[in-house]
Nucleic acid binder design. Structure first.
Lengths: 128, 128
DNA sequence: ATTGACTTTTACGTAAACGTAAATTAAAAT
DNA sequence: ATTTTAATTTACGTTTACGTAAAAGTCAAT
């Protein structure tokens, strides 16, 4: 297995190294260290980072993303824990579904408005 | 036609009056005033506020929301303006579509993980 | 071996999006 | 008429999510 350095990841995702370190400060990601203290990121770390960035695009706060990651990430061994995780997951799934529906409606409205504008434009062109 | 006061709107949308005034500061909403300077909001103002809050839920910044509102809101009379608006609208529409696709993928992944968890739970229950 | 690129921690700075408090005025209720 | 409730402006405070700079150590290449 091989590792990424912080600047490699930063370049790949087009973010700053500061940003990656900040996510670590907040407990979202935990790279291993070399003897000298340099951070090394595994493929898994990279995947987590990708998750974080996707969450951000959806407008989730780092706090929310943190919650999701720690619930889905850990080996939820105990049965109670597992049940809790499933409940939380279903809740989040519902939120995502609602968000999708909301966005679909927005999309529809935008399409309507655009159609309207295009019609107006055509009318302007026809009458010149 | 009748009006809403600021605290009525605040209650309806479960936000603070400060928030509403802040949106005004940023030029997103422009209520009329009584002689004494009290803000009065029309149905249209209310609709704009609703738009703002929806935009926020999608993770758009107030700046982006401002742009969208001012482009779709005004009477884009000139032909050049209309063309520009259409182009901008199509761009935003594309962004929304991408966001939807992204969310659909996330939803799918969450469902897979949840299924996995549920299977595990059932196995635990079967073996007791 | 030394230069240059990269990394680390520490720490102060900043923009966005409000919260909160104070002082004042106006509207609503008793 | 006078409390009570709601509104206004002004202004400083706060949180989130980083940016930026400094000082010092480390890795890679010549």
């Amino acid at each position: 297995m091989n590792y990424y350095t912080i600047s490699q990841l930063a370049e790949q995702f087009d973010i700053s190294t500061r940003t990656i370190r900040y996510y670590e400060e907040r407990g979202l990601i935990s790279p291993i260290r070399t003897e000298s203290g340099q951070r090394l990121y595994t493929k898994k770390d990279r995947a987590v980072l990708k998750l974080i960035l996707r969450g951000k695009r959806f407008g989730f706060s780092l706090e929310e993303i943190h919650e999701m990651i720690s619930l889905f990430d850990k080996d939820r061994t105990g049965r109670k824990q597992l049940e809790k995780t499933i409940k939380y997951g279903e809740q989040k799934l519902k939120e995502v579904t609602e968000r999708i529906d909301d966005l679909l409606q927005l999309k529809h409205e935008m399409e309507t408005i655009l159609q309207d504008f295009k019609t107006r434009l055509r009318e302007m062109e026809d009458s010149e």
